[in-house]
Structure formats: structure tokens, C-alpha cells
Design a protein around this nucleic acid. Structure first.
Lengths: 201, 201
DNA sequence: GTGCCAGTGTGACTTTATCACTGAACTGAG
DNA sequence: CTCAGTTCAGTGATAAAGTCACACTGGCAC
């Protein structure tokens, strides 16, 4: 079902209009929502599921910048939509998701006619900037073993992920993750197996 | 003089209105435009000069996130303005600057009534997200010696800066900067003196 | 001058990144 | 099932970067 809180805020008539011209996309896990360099043809509103946004540097290394979940707005798309530049990052569907595509014309109309819609967009932008600022600090100054433990503790055991994927989450090298995990296993905090991490206690 | 391209785009009548309720601030070097935790009472438009935005992590380390110059918009303020949260970063005036303060009410009105104003705001947001994404990649993956040289080569010799300040620019430790600079001096690329770096050639 | 202090230099050590390689675990074809 | 190919994980060696501790020094205030 098409349900997103930013659409709820619209006046009844505008909402009706909107619901007609919006198409809902079903996104299976692994699907690429957009790639680096691609152009943007609409603003995706996340209805359900989960999508990660990551970027690959010139060095070839990648890092996950943030995630989008139900009721999020793909803020990154707005910039591409307005300036016509291509995406700098890529978005990969993690959990079975649904997203509503708002075409450029409708976006302009909603921005023009609804203060609540504008507020939603601005808030979303603000949160995203905040996320990225925190990430910069994290990457620049925090210790990798702390960040790894924190990341693990935010999940529910067992965690299905390869060391390489975990390295991309943290923006480091696979070997570093392997060594730190091995250290945690020695301390009895985790149990390791291929593509899987079990948290202990 | 109050001149900012986003104001130029306004329809004549709105522009007249705007110019009346906007107050211009003179900002001497060293002045703090806003501090972390402070609340925001308007959107600053940069008319001239230069301001750096930096953030201090829990660790106490700081890093420069980006700079604002003439004709820029302090995008970071919009989020604070709309959500009411405090700033996460601080803004420090570097060169003698002027900024126009757009109060909340006027901002809302401009967003409501001018598509060009909205476009300007969105573009500014997009650029800022882009900047931060590039910074994340830079901090996570690039070598410090390269980043240092690049930073130096973007300035005009002599550069008046302490090693500590340069460390904040790059998000690293003072000792690292000192050692890398010493290495550059040994290679004959720079000449070092207290609070000053001369580029050679 | 003398004392003070921000700024700088450097050794010792830890943490993280990179490179190179090994072996183990899974997959699919036959 | 067996074998070959591929992905994933472990690890040593080495280099780069971060941390801690402390010595030195240039310039300003008195």
C-alpha cells in the first residue's frame, strides 16, 4: 500500500492528484536503485524495507554512507533532480522494499503548493547532513575496534555478512575487519563462521 | 552592499519586501557565527568574505567540514531553523565578511512564493551533501601526505597557519602534520618557520 | 634581560592500511 | 560423489598514521 507520512500532510485535493501520478516500485533485495553517474528521474519515497547508500572512491574502496528505511525520503535524489548532475553514490536494496516515485513535475508542484511538504523535505535534508557530519567525525577520529563492536551490537545475532561487506560498512580494509573479529573471538565475544557472526551473551 | 544572487531571482515586489526585513551583519575575522549547540534564528546568506565550518568530535578532535564564500547559503542553518535542533558544528569567520540574515518568517514566505528561491536552496543543499560525501571518502581512504600537498597547493605562498590549525583542516593530529611538513622541507618543497609555510617554486 | 608559553620537533609505541599469499568452505558440472 | 573453480577468511611482513611524552625554541610581556 502507498503510505508515506509526507503525503499524509498534503491537502486532500493535492493528495488525490499526487496518488494518481505516483507509481509504486517493488524492490527485491540486491536490486540497484541507482548507480553512481546515473541521472535522476524522480524523488523516491521509501514506503517499506531498507536500502543502503554507499559510495566508491577513486581508490576503489567503498563505504556505506547511510541507510534509508520506511517513511524516509531519498534526499540525495533531490540534488540530482534539481541540478541535473548524476548521482555520486549508489543505492542497494537490502530488504524487500517498496518505494513511490515522485516525478519532477509533481515534486515542483508539491513544493509550490504545500508548506508541510516543504518542511518534510527540509527536515529530511537536515537529518542527512547531520548523519554525514557524524560519519566524517567517526571515520576521522574513532578507533576501528570500538566502531566494529558498536556496529555489531546494533544488530541481532546471528549476523549474516562477509568480512568484506563489513569492511565497506566501516570504510576500512577486509584484513582489518578479519583481525579485529578474530581478536573478539579470542576474547569470547563472538563466534565466527563463513559469512556469519554470532554474538555471545 | 546587499547583493546575493538568490535574492536577484525574486520577483520585484517580493525582493523589495525582502530587502526591507533583512539585516546585514558585518563579521570580523575570528568572530564565531554560531557555536555547536546554539539555536538558529535565521538563514545567513554570505555576501562577501569567507567562513569555515568545523566540528569537534567527542574525542575533542576537530575537523573542517567545508567553507562558505561570497554568494553561498548557510545550508546547515536551514535544518536547525526547521527542526529547532541546535547546530552540531561551529562557524568561524576567516576573512572580513558580510552576511544577510533572513528571519524565519521571511524564509517561509520566500519558499512559499518563489520557485527560483526554492531552486537555489535545493541546489545549495545538494552541493553541501556532495561536499560532505567527498570528504568522507577523502578522510576514509586517501593518504595524508597527498591530502596535505593538495591542501598546500591550493593556497598562495606564504601560508600563515600553525601545524595545529592545519591538522584541523585535514582531520589529523598535529604531530602527523609536523612530520609530513618536515619531510616536505627535506625534499625542498617548502620552507618552514613559526606559524608560516613558504612553498618553493 | 627574564620568564612564560604557544608552537614545533622527535622518539617510542600502538593502531590501521596495504600487499602477498595460504588454505578452507562452498558451488556446480559431470 | 568427485573435482575444479570461486568466494571467503587468516595471517605475516611492512608501511602509514595516530598517540603519548617530553624537549626545545622563538617571540612577547614584564
Amino acid at each position: 500500500m502507498l503510505h508515506h507520512s509526507i503525503l499524509e500532510t498534503l491537502p486532500r485535493e493535492l493528495q488525490k492528484d499526487a496518488l494518481e501520478s505516483i507509481q509504486v516500485m517493488r524492490l527485491p533485495p540486491g536490486k540497484i536503485l541507482f548507480r553512481a553517474g546515473e541521472h535522476c528521474h524522480g524523488l523516491p519515497l521509501m514506503l517499506s524495507g531498507g536500502v543502503k547508500v554507499q559510495m566508491t572512491g577513486i581508490s576503489g574502496n567503498s563505504i556505506v554512507l547511510y541507510r534509508m528505511g520506511a517513511d524516509d525520503i531519498c534526499t540525495l535524489s533531490i540534488g540530482c533532480l534539481m541540478t541535473g548532475y548524476g548521482y555520486r553514490a549508489e543505492a542497494i536494496v537490502e530488504d524487500e522494499s517498496e518505494a513511490a516515485m515522485i516525478p519532477r513535475g509533481l515534486f515542483d508542484r508539491l513544493m509550490d503548493q504545500s508548506a508541510a511538504f516543504r518542511l518534510g523535505i527540509m527536515e529530511s535534508y537536515g537529518r542527512r547532513l547531520d548523519d554525514l557530519m557524524l560519519l566524517v567525525e567517526e571515520v576521522a577520529f574513532r578507533r576501528m575496534d570500538e566502531r566494529l563492536e558498536e556496529w555489531l551490537n546494533l544488530r541481532r545475532s546471528p549476523i549474516h555478512i562477509t568480512h568484506q561487506e563489513l569492511a565497506v560498512e566501516l570504510g576500512t580494509a577486509r584484513e582489518v575487519v578479519s583481525r579485529l573479529l578474530k581478536e573478539l573471538e579470542r576474547k569470547g565475544r563472538v563466534r565466527l563462521s563463513r559469512g556469519r557472526i554470532d554474538l555471545i551473551e
